[in-house]
């Protein structure tokens, strides 16, 4: 990992003729930084951006304030288009998630993709766990899959839209095992949990921190974790591989981009700021509290990640029968 950062930094230095580590080399945001997110207040990206804004202030990483701007709609398309319009604007950044990559695959109107914006850094990978209601008969993911095989299409999973990570995990599991179960989309995270707790669906893919409280209260049981390594909060729950399902653990990814057409030194500045942020104690605490994984990657690494992630998602969505336009 360290080696990769060093080599990527070296490559960037060669490209831009900069001396690294970049220390802001002259560029500094001149007024309040706009941080664009694609969810309304309270959504995942919104909360992350506000938390980052607070930490920036607390750790004095930015000379100016950071203000969150909500541009919801179209699975990230509206926010991406807004950033594209701000071409060359030096005081705007955006917080992206995986849907900024998968959204344009299914929506013809989403003309701006992440490739059209300036990559800055990947910040976090959010792992997930597979949970059932505490009184459900399934003690392991094997139990659930066996039950799904016995009555195909009868068991149900609640989750987000068809391009969300929840459905990707389901598609991978179904393909791997041959079992079939129904997928019911709920736009709001709260509704998904309510559907599981109310016994209207049998299973869901949920973020560890969200599941944690329901497990502690004895309402939920976790069957497996969608991770490569066991999370510290769930030392006794097997990962997908350990549970006998050899499928990739798809993380929810979050990171930072800038509008197109900004100078290289600005990219270096932002990379530096976010790298410093990820080293702070407040950031480490934030990751631990939410059970996120540190997913820091610089601009070069992020660009590679785009291609790999988009390619993989395209394959999975195609197999799931989702109509793709790109």
């Amino acid at each position: 990992m360290k080696l990769r950062i060093v080599s990527a930094a070296a490559a960037l230095a060669a490209l831009g003729g900069l001396h690294l580590p970049a220390q802001g080399q002259g560029f500094k945001p001149s007024r309040t930084v706009e941080a664009v997110v694609h969810t309304g207040p309270g959504g995942g990206s919104d909360v992350l951006a506000r938390a980052v804004a607070l930490m920036m202030e607390k750790e004095k990483l930015l000379p100016v304030r950071m203000q969150v701007v909500n541009k919801p709609g179209g699975n990230g398309a509206v926010a991406a288009a807004y950033l594209a319009e701000k071409k060359g604007d030096q005081n705007t950044i955006g917080f992206f998630t995986g849907v900024w990559l998968t959204g344009p695959l299914t929506s013809a109107e989403a003309k701006v993709t992440l490739r059209d914006l300036t990559p800055i850094a990947r910040l976090v990978l959010e792992p997930a766990v597979i949970a059932v209601k505490a009184d459900a008969p399934y003690k392991s993911l094997q139990d659930f899959v066996a039950a799904a095989k016995k009555s195909p299409g009868q068991l149900k999973q609640s989750g987000g839209s068809v391009t969300s990570r929840d459905n990707i995990v389901r598609q991978l599991l179904q393909k791997h095992t041959g079992a079939q179960w129904a997928y019911i989309s709920f736009p709001g995270g709260g509704e998904r949990i309510a559907a599981l707790l109310g016994g209207h669906v049998n299973m869901m893919v949920i973020e560890p921190a969200e599941a944690g409280e329901h497990i502690r209260a004895g309402n939920m049981r976790v069957l497996a974790q969608v991770t490569e390594k066991r999370l510290s909060g769930f030392p006794n729950v097997p990962t997908l591989k350990e549970a006998g399902f050899d499928i990739p653990a798809v993380p929810q990814v979050r990171g930072v981009v800038a509008p197109p057409g900004i100078p290289k030194e600005n990219v270096a500045y932002w990379e530096d700021v976010f790298q410093k942020l990820t080293k702070t104690a407040s950031w480490q605490k934030f990751l631990a509290d939410n059970q996120f994984e540190d997913g820091y990657q610089d601009a070069v690494g992020l660009t590679k990640f785009y291609d790999e992630f988009t390619g993989r998602m395209r394959g999975i969505l195609q197999e799931a029968g989702v109509k793709l336009v790109r």
């Binding site: 709609g73 299914t106 109107e109 068809v162 989702v322 109509k323």
Partner: peptide, 15 residues
Amino acid sequence: STTSRFTFGQLELLS
């Protein structure tokens, strides 16, 4: 399905 409806190609109508 995240496909668009009655948007007439207008990004603003996506949401």
